[in-house]
C-alpha cells in the first residue's frame, strides 16, 4: 500500500507558476545579452511582474517576482552568489515598495508608475546590499546617481511596454 502525496493546488498557484516560468525565460535570455555598462540591465522580466500586479494584485506579483529570481538563479548557477543576493534584495525591495503603491485611494498608479517605483526601489536595494555586504566603501555611492538615472529610464520604458501589453490582452 502506498500513500501518494497529494498537493492541492489552487488556480492561483497555477497562474503564479505560469507567469513565473514566463518571467524566468525572459530573465535567462536577458542574462545572455551583453550589457553596455556593468550594472545596467533592461530588466524586461519585470514587465511580467507589473502586468501580473495590474491584473491579479500584489500577492501574485510578489510570488512571481521572487520565484523568478530564485528559479532564474538556479538555472544560471548563481544561487547564493553575490549576483543572486543583489538580484534578490532588489526584487524584495521592489515588492515592498509596490505594496503601499498599489493600495493608494482613487485611480492611483498605473503600470508606468509601478514600474518606475519598482525600478528605483530595485536599484536602491541593490546598492544598499552591495554597500553592506560587498563594497563597504563610501565611494560606491558615487555610482548610485548614474545607475539611478538608468533605472528611471528603463523603469519608464518597461512601464510603457507593460501598458501596451495590458491594453492588448484586455
Amino acid at each position: 500500500m502506498t500513500d501518494t502525496l497529494q498537493l492541492n493546488t489552487t488556480p492561483d498557484d497555477h497562474r503564479i507558476a505560469w507567469f513565473a516560468a514566463l518571467a524566468v525565460v525572459i530573465h535567462v535570455v536577458e542574462s545572455a545579452l551583453p550589457s553596455p555598462l556593468p550594472g545596467i540591465k533592461p530588466g524586461l522580466a519585470n514587465v511580467v511582474t507589473i502586468i501580473v500586479l495590474c491584473k491579479y494584485g500584489w500577492q501574485t506579483a510578489a510570488w512571481v517576482s521572487l520565484l523568478r529570481v530564485l528559479a532564474g538563479s538556479l538555472i544560471l548557477g548563481t544561487f547564493l552568489t553575490p549576483t543572486f543576493m543583489l538580484a534578490f534584495s532588489g526584487a524584495l525591495c521592489s515588492v515592498c515598495v509596490l505594496y503601499p503603491a498599489c493600495r493608494l485611494p482613487g485611480r492611483g498608479f498605473g503600470p508606468v508608475g509601478f514600474s518606475l517605483l519598482a525600478a528605483m526601489a530595485h536599484i536602491s536595494g541593490q546598492f544598499f546590499t552591495a554597500w553592506m555586504l560587498f563594497i563597504p566603501h563610501p565611494g560606491i555611492w558615487q555610482l548610485f546617481p548614474v545607475l539611478l538615472s538608468f533605472a528611471i529610464l528603463l523603469g519608464v520604458i518597461n512601464g510603457i511596454i507593460s501598458l501596451h501589453v495590458l491594453k492588448r490582452i484586455k
Partner: peptide, 24 residues
C-alpha cells in the same frame, strides 16, 4: 498614464539632480 504616474515621474526628474549633488 494616470495622473499619479505623471506626478511621480515629474517628482523623480526634479529630485534626480539633488541625488547627483548629494552623492558627488
Amino acid at each position: 498614464m494616470t495622473r499619479a504616474d505623471l506626478f511621480l515621474l515629474l517628482a523623480v526628474m526634479f529630485a534626480l539632480p539633488f541625488v547627483y549633488q548629494a552623492s558627488w
